[in-house]
Amino acid sequence: MSAPELGTSEPLGDAEPDQGPRVRRGALLRGRGLAGLSLVGVVVLAGLLAPLIAPYSPQEQLPDANLLGASAGHLFGTDEVNRDVFSRVLHGIRADLLVCLIAVPCGAVLGGLLGLVASQYGPADVAAQRAFDIVLAFPPIILGIGIAAVTGVGMLPVICVVIGAELPLFGRLVRTATLKVRELPYVDAAESMGATRAWVLRKHVVPNILDAVIVQLALSASMAVFISSAMNFIGIGVRPPSPSLGGVLADAMAQLGTNDMYAIGPLLVIVMLVLGFQLIAQALLAERRHGGDAS
């Protein structure tokens, strides 16, 4: 922390490893936080290890296995073209996690930077606020259909939509938090010592708004899972036959009477992810409030 390099490295990433774990670790090791972490952990692990633990290939059409119910051999049964639903769900997790891993950090970093810039320069603030208003005026799915009309279906529109939906959230969050921190006496103190604007941002503002950003990250991950599942469900996401949670669920809708687990399986995973991220966010938020009271 005392190294005086005044680099131009991205501020959000810069301070994260240093300030991050101090408060947060505790919150994730008990109660809600632990529950959320376990839910997300199980799903992430299943997705990562999919090629190892999936009993079949996601595309493999099995002989004599049309719309079988759940059994020891096929945990979620099989689908209408004789594929193992459990294997497809495991592989489908990867598509959703990819969205979370790429789109959420991108949205956070871009939105955060926009928010920081907006908090520093008046005209940029006005421009950013109006742009955020416009993006927020579109429901994410409509935005997705619009983008897919230009780019064609695939992972790209899903990622674009998640980034688009998160830009304004992070932008506003960072802007407000920055403006608030900047008014505090210790920032005034640093400026009186001769600190530059960049120094104040890097050393005082960013570390002090990071907690708020981390909570929003968890919330955004939950939202990203939801949006990507919804887009895959309506067919503008991952191109079939590649599996995705939303895609498997969409296919299952036609077969509800025959194999219930066909729909329940992917749904269960989506619920675990969304709920898990929400629990993590709540636990972090509660921890932050406590921390705020104590200081």
Partner: peptide, 13 residues
């Protein structure tokens, strides 16, 4: 510079 309120003029982190 020394400010009035030392609690507020030191970065809590």
């Amino acid at each position: 510079v020394v400010h009035q309120d030392p609690a507020a003029s030191l970065d809590p982190r």
